[in-house]
């Protein structure tokens, strides 16, 4: 039996200790948000917060967690999800849970990021439907709702002199 703390609750699971956290979240704790996308740490669909840092849960063996706290989309405040809903920021939506979790990590650390910081921060997470513009709008909206805000517009391709 392995004990882990997810969304403030302790759980005991009977799995192989090398099982990546993702499979435990999905199959043992029946939490749907984190998704299997690549199992290689390349797409971010499985992103969860581990002691406030966004990590790929597909690569963290459950035995490695120790006392560290896991947060998934299910355990986050509703500000970001509400912003994603308000902006209709999803097409197929498979990547969205990971997007929200990664954005949460950004806004907890820095509620007033610049547009460029926001885009750089979100870079590890892939979206194939092309919902990026809406996702960025949703993060901006959530930042404002949290009393912060995305500070300046990105100067895409602008020549800095």
């Amino acid at each position: 039996m392995i004990t882990l703390t997810v969304n403030g609750q302790a759980h005991q699971v009977d799995v192989d200790p090398d099982t990546p956290l993702l499979y435990v979240l999905r199959n043992d704790l029946e939490l749907n948000a984190a998704k299997f996308g690549c199992g290689l740490g390349q797409c971010g669909a499985c992103t969860v917060l581990l002691d406030d840092k966004p990590v790929f849960s597909c690569l963290v063996p459950v035995a490695a967690l120790g006392a560290r706290k896991v947060r998934t989309l299910e355990g986050l405040p509703k500000t970001l999800p509400a912003a994603f809903e308000a902006e209709q920021a999803a097409q197929c939506g498979y990547c969205i849970a990971g997007m929200i979790v990664r954005a949460q990590a950004l806004l907890e650390r820095n509620p007033r990021p610049t547009e460029k910081e926001m885009r750089t921060h979100m870079a590890p997470n892939l979206c194939r439907c092309g919902t990026h513009m809406r996702i960025l709008r949703a993060v901006r909206r959530a930042a404002e709702a949290m009393g912060g805000g995305v500070r300046e517009e990105a100067r895409i391709g602008a020549e800095e002199k």
């Binding site: 939490l31 299997f36 989309l73 999800p81 809903e85």
Partner: peptide
């Protein structure tokens, strides 16, 4: 009309065949 499938997708609901148990 807001998309009917989005609430489950932003809250960890059962939204996909991948989520079926």
């Amino acid at each position: 009309l807001p998309r009917l499938d989005i609430p489950a997708k932003v809250s960890g609901g059962e939204a996909y065949v991948q989520d079926m148990r």
